[in-house]
């Protein structure tokens, strides 16, 4: 059997054409946004989800998910598809476009799209999620696409029988590191502490995997190479010593930055950009504008609570505004 993906990619056709007014416009089609769409549509709201890249958000780029209830193990992509099918099933429209700007004026909420068209919404849900954090060291940008990657399932195929480093010690780093052991000859996890932050079960798998090695208490100071990455300059944070660490590629999983640039100065955020919400209603500092999922200020950033945020926000919106 062949795996094929069905995301409807476009507005090529009448069927996904969007109107210029909705009860609820959800920006971002990850688990948080798609769950908000399920609750809003079932609640009778005319609902639009705007997703600029790939339906399912970060889960579409995740190899396997093992902690979403009901699925002992499911491909990220398959779960993503189930979420979007589910949202469509109850009548939500999903549009594959980007949002450029939001304007709030005089009781009107207007969403300005990349192509400059405008959509008006009675309520808005910000579900724009988060993006991988960069190391911010010399060579990282220069070698992006030349051995520096942020997506193991996208790029793993190019490192067959090669030695790669994974930077980070959380769930994503270890999960994707384990995925890379399927193709790479060796995967070295470089972590700034002396123990992993990932779930115990992942740690056990990592420690038992003969292809996985660990460099503790170390941070990357520089990415080096010729045409291609061939070395990392590592610094031991305990004794300050520097060393060369030859590798063929490096995958970076060191955390997240919120996709909240769109909203700069419009909403209250933490100093690093995570949106502040009312923990009960998920409403932001602007009435009628809600925020959910990885983009908000919270402790745990996972699919299950992204989905839960979406449900709560849609349900409070219905109570408060319709």
């Amino acid at each position: 059997m062949i795996d094929v993906v069905f995301f409807d990619l476009g507005d090529s056709q009448g069927s996904t054409e969007t109107k210029d007014q909705y009860d609820m416009v959800i920006i971002g089609g990850g688990p948080a946004g798609l769950t908000a769409a399920i609750y809003a549509s079932r609640g009778g709201l005319d609902t639009l989800v705007i997703e600029k890249s790939s339906e399912g958000g970060q889960i579409a780029a995740t190899e396997k998910v093992e902690n979403y209830p009901g699925f002992i193990s499911i491909d990220g992509l398959e779960l993503a598809e189930k979420f979007s099918d589910h949202a469509r099933h109850f009548g939500a429209t999903i549009s594959n476009r980007g949002v450029r700007n939001l304007t709030f004026c005089c009781d009107k909420k207007t969403i300005v799209m990349d192509d400059s068209s405008e959509i008006e919404a009675k309520t808005i849900v910000i579900a724009t999620g988060a993006t991988h954090r960069k190391l911010g060291v010399p060579g990282e940008k220069e070698y992006e696409g030349k051995g520096v990657s942020y997506c193991a399932i996208c790029d793993g195929a190019f490192f067959r029988d090669k030695h790669v480093a994974v930077i980070g010690g959380g769930n994503s780093a270890i999960d994707e590191g384990l995925y890379l052991t399927q193709t790479a000859s060796k995967v070295t996890v470089v972590h700034r502490r002396d123990k992993l932050r990932a779930d115990k079960i992942l740690q056990e798998r990592a420690f038992n995997n003969p292809k996985m090695e660990f460099v503790w208490d170390s941070v990357v100071e520089e990415v080096q190479g010729d045409a291609f990455v061939n070395n990392l300059v590592l610094k031991n944070v305990k004794d300050g010593t520097q060393s060369d660490f030859p590798v063929d590629g490096v995958f970076i999983y060191i955390g997240l930055v919120p996709n909240s640039a769109l909203l700069k100065n419009l909403l209250q955020t933490t100093h690093d950009g995570f949106i502040k919400v009312n923990p009960v209603t998920f409403e932001t500092s602007l009435p009628g504008v809600f925020a959910v999922g990885d983009v908000i200020d919270k402790e745990l950033r996972q699919i299950i609570n992204a989905a839960a945020d979406g449900a709560s926000a849609a349900s409070s919106a219905i109570k408060l505004y319709f």
Binding site: L9, S54, A61, L77, I153, C154, A157
Partner: peptide
Amino acid sequence: VTPTCPYCPKAVL
């Protein structure tokens, strides 16, 4: 592209 890359269809299209 690779078939497992979720960002790729957009680039091809």
